[in-house]
Amino acid sequence: MRILIAEDLAILREGLAQLLEMRGHQIATVGDAAALHDRAGAWHPDIAVIDIRMPPTHTDEGVRAAVALRAAYPAVGVLLFSQYVETRFAKQLLTGGAAGVGYLLKDRVGDIDEFVDALERVAAGGTALDPEVVNQLFGASQRDHDLARLTRREREALALMAEGRTNAAIAKTFVVTERAVEKHVANIFSKLGLLASESDHRRVLAVLRYLEAA
C-alpha cells in the first residue's frame, strides 16, 4: 500500500512510518493538515492516516482535512488516528458515508497485524471503526437487541447500506423496485429508533448500528 501519514509529532510520525515500512509499505509523511492535501494530490496514496490534533489550533484540523480529502479524492481511504475518540468527529467523518473511512485510537498500533488489516480494509473502501467509537456512538447496551428485530431482508439491505450502496443499487441487487427498498429502509430506521429529526445522519447511524453488531 501507499500510505500517507499526517502527524505533527515527529516521534509518532517517524515511528509509524518505520513500523509500516517494516511491513513493506510505501510511506510518505507530512506534518500538518495543509501539506496533507497537496501531498495527496501529488503522491496518490491508497490511504491517508491522519492525526486529529494538528497545527495551527490543535483541535480538529485532522477531521476537517479528512473530510476535505474525501471530497477531493474519493478513491483515497481516510483513517483518523487519534489519542481520543469523540462522537462529534466520528459523525463528521461518517456523514459522507462509511465507505473507505476509519477512526482508530493510536494505541491500536500495539497489534500490527490488526492495525495493518484495518488499513487495508479502509484502503479497499471498507470501514474500520475503533470499538471505542462504536461504544460511544451507541453507548447504551440496551439498544443491542434492536438489530434482532430486523427481518432478514432488512438486515441484508442494512449490510448493503454499510458498503455505501444507494437505494437504487440495493434495489438492483434485490431485483425489486426502489420503492420497496425505501420501505425497507424506513422500517430499519423505525426499528432502530432513529427519529426523522436525525435524518441527516440516519443512514450513517443505521450503518454504524450494523457495524457494531457485525
Binding site: 509518532l12 515511528g15 513500523l19 493510536k106 498500533v109
Partner: peptide, 13 residues
C-alpha cells in the same frame, strides 16, 4: 502520551 504510543510501536516492532 505520545511517548507511550511510540513505546507501543517499538514493542510491536
Amino acid at each position: 502520551q505520545a511517548r507511550l504510543v511510540a513505546l507501543t510501536m517499538n514493542l510491536a516492532m
